Simulated assay, not measured.
Amino acid sequence: MNQSLGTIITGIVTDINDKAYFIQKSGITYEMPKTETTSYELGDAVEGFAYISQNKSYKLTQDIPKVQIGYYAFSKVIDVRRDLGVFVDIGLPDKEIVVSLDELPTEKQLWPKKGDQLMVTIRVDEKDRMWGELADEEVFISLSKKASEDLINKDIKGIAYRLKVVGTYILTEGDHLGFIHPSQRDIEPRLGEEISGRVIGIGQEGAVNISLKPRAHEAIPEDAAMLLAILERSKDGSFPYTDKSSPEDIKLHFGISKGQFKRAIGNLLKQRKIVQVDGETRLVKNESADNE
């Protein structure tokens, strides 16, 4: 196995033509395009990243990728093959790296899609094939930092890096570890998917507990949100209409049918945002729409 692949090496220029330098290291010659670098002479030492290109030739590049053997970085998924795995772009000009299907979820609907991000390193097998290898839990722990209480109820984004029966694990944009319990999501995220949610708690180890469900006020249907806005903007937080009002009055003043009105009123009553008293609908005072 060529132990130089996937690493930064230093070799000696042994040949030059119009298009490339040929650099030797440990008996193997690597090609490096002239367009990529300044000029070298025969016998010069050259440092670069060693890899095998898509057409299986040995190459050297001085545009060093972040992903190397022993080094991890998020890499974008650029293609998916159900019989092989997913291809990720680590920044090489003529080479994509495959993450084998053996490392991906058993349920293929949870596989990454194009544009998703996977934290990978490089593994080289005995046939000199370069593979992407997913980062394990220890890598994410080493990259993370503890979250503070002031993040609670804040919006947050992150990448799903582990899918388990107990829930989804993510690394946030702020480099915090995050956890989404199945009760706090409607659909299980894909591996590598970017997730937007909100922080609902901080764990003992400084990880964030995240919900993908909307806040109470965000979950209000459109008609209910309209009625709530009218109440909030009124002088005394009320209007003289209830679910007993006539369809004509409701249509005239709100532009919706009585059926729509009743459903909206019912939603707000259930969430205890309003009360109906003496022929009026009134806003419940001192309510915070952000609290559930």
Results as ranks from 00 to 15, higher is better:
V120S: 00
I69F: 03
L104C: 07
L227C: 02
V277L: 13
N209Q: 15
L134Q: 00
G43S: 10
F74M: 02
F74T: 02
A207K: 05
S246M: 03
E133H: 11
D128P: 05
A20C: 13
D94E: 09
D186H: 13
V208Q: 04
G206V: 05
A224H: 02
D278E: 15
K66P: 01
L283W: 11
K164G: 08
H176W: 10
S211V: 00
G43E: 05
M1Y: 14
S26G: 10
Y241D: 00
K235C: 09
K113W: 11
K244D: 11
S144A: 14
V120A: 00
D155T: 14
L227I: 03
S257D: 08
I210Y: 00
G279A: 03
E137Y: 09
G48V: 07
K285A: 13
T35A: 14
V80Q: 06
H176S: 07
K127M: 13
P214E: 06
Q260T: 10
V13S: 07
H176L: 09
Q276Y: 09
F49M: 09
S75L: 04
I210G: 01
T10Y: 04
L134K: 00
S57V: 13
S148V: 06
A289E: 10
I141A: 15
E137N: 14
G178L: 03
L163K: 05
G192K: 03
R198N: 01
A73Q: 01
N17A: 09
I256V: 09
A160S: 14
E36T: 12
K213C: 02
E96Q: 13
V88Q: 01
R129P: 02
K108T: 13
V284F: 04
L118T: 00
L227N: 04
S53D: 07
S211D: 01
P112K: 02
I170M: 14
V99I: 11
D125R: 10
Q204L: 13
P189S: 05
I200F: 00
R215G: 08
